[in-house]
Write a protein that binds this DNA or RNA. Structure first.
Lengths: 180, 180
DNA sequence: ATTTTGGTTCAATATATTTTGAACTTGTCG
DNA sequence: CGACAAGTTCAAAATATATTGAACCAAAAT
């Protein structure tokens, strides 16, 4: 593929090869993964699936990305958990095939549910604990610190309340427009 | 501080020492920093400032957190850049003092502006480049891939449009409530 | 003008995270 | 059943990221 004689460019097109477009798309998803705090291999996997018109099987994920079996296995698992990738079955083929989720709402939803929400829940628990300690300390607590502990609670609640709005705003039904 | 004889608990309070509350708050911010992809030392610095009723000077940040000069310097700089920390001046004192930002809207705003927005802008540039390559390739591009490239653009625009809404929703004026 | 103080920089080191790949499981086929 | 194929697991190696601290700079104090 994409050699002088067997190019993805069938015909005499002098332009850039299709595979360069794909390379750039994979790079884009590697960057995105990094921005989201996911390993780059996961971005690579998603990028490859995203570029393919048909679902891809495990071994092709490996050969096309060049990553190891282990990474592919773990990456595909996580991507499925956050709703970024679906498994599909092909008749009379034992292997599993994979395809990317393309609806932003679902992508975002999975990511928020699996990655952000647990952090917010942990935070809430931690704040409960802090409030309990603060209660036991009663008057020894500086009033300013006491107030600030209250604001921790309020931040956490605001963050938690934000998530459903974000999903709603990312829905296809939402036309673009300024807030307010 | 907080030894058997020189406890933060002045008086015969049998409760947990104030410093344990502070320890837990610092731990909370270390977790938060981690969740946001910032080094834990930055969370530690913010936590210490958050716990102090008065602004703290550079050297006290170091002694109270136990981190190195270098980390403190870098951490304070970044925290100021993202609006999480303000520098304040004390009369007839050469040193700078620092205090935490407490308004969620400002904290979120700085973080989004300095951390999230640049990624979205990079993404937009990258997508421009991909569209150009795709254009040069004309008909060689699989129609499905062409469609998907269009959706990249739409995702990026949606993400970009989301930011102002998030800020708006995090504003103090917003009462909590379900979306829709 | 020299010293001291407050703070920054950045190369070296320490720590954390990701990736690899060989050994293993599980299910399928002949 | 035995052999193979698809995929998982996880300890070790590779990579990336954060932290340290000594050398440095600039402004104030002496």
């Amino acid at each position: 593929m994409d050699t002088l004689f067997q190019s993805d460019n069938h015909g005499d097109n002098p332009g850039i090869s299709v595979s360069e477009v794909e390379t750039e798309i994979v790079l884009l998803f590697i960057n995105l993964a990094h921005a989201l705090g996911l390993p780059k291999s996961h971005g690579e996997i998603f990028g490859i699936l995203f570029c393919s018109p048909e679902p891809i099987c495990f071994d092709d994920v490996i050969t096309r990305t060049g990553i190891s079996k282990g990474s592919a296995s773990q990456g595909l698992r996580l991507l499925q958990r956050i709703n970024a990738v679906r498994q599909v079955h092909v008749a009379r083929d034992r292997r599993s095939f994979f395809e990317p989720e393309l609806r932003m709402r679902h992508l975002l939803g999975g990511f928020l549910r699996e990655t952000v929400e647990p952090h917010i829940q942990n935070g809430a628990n931690h704040i409960n604990h802090i409030e309990k300690l603060a209660g036991q300390n009663g008057d020894d607590l500086h009033p300013v610190l006491h107030e600030r502990i209250l604001s921790l609670r309020s931040w956490n609640q605001k963050a938690s309340g934000l998530l459903p709005w974000i999903l709603k705003l990312a829905s296809p039904s939402n036309r673009p427009g300024p807030p307010g």
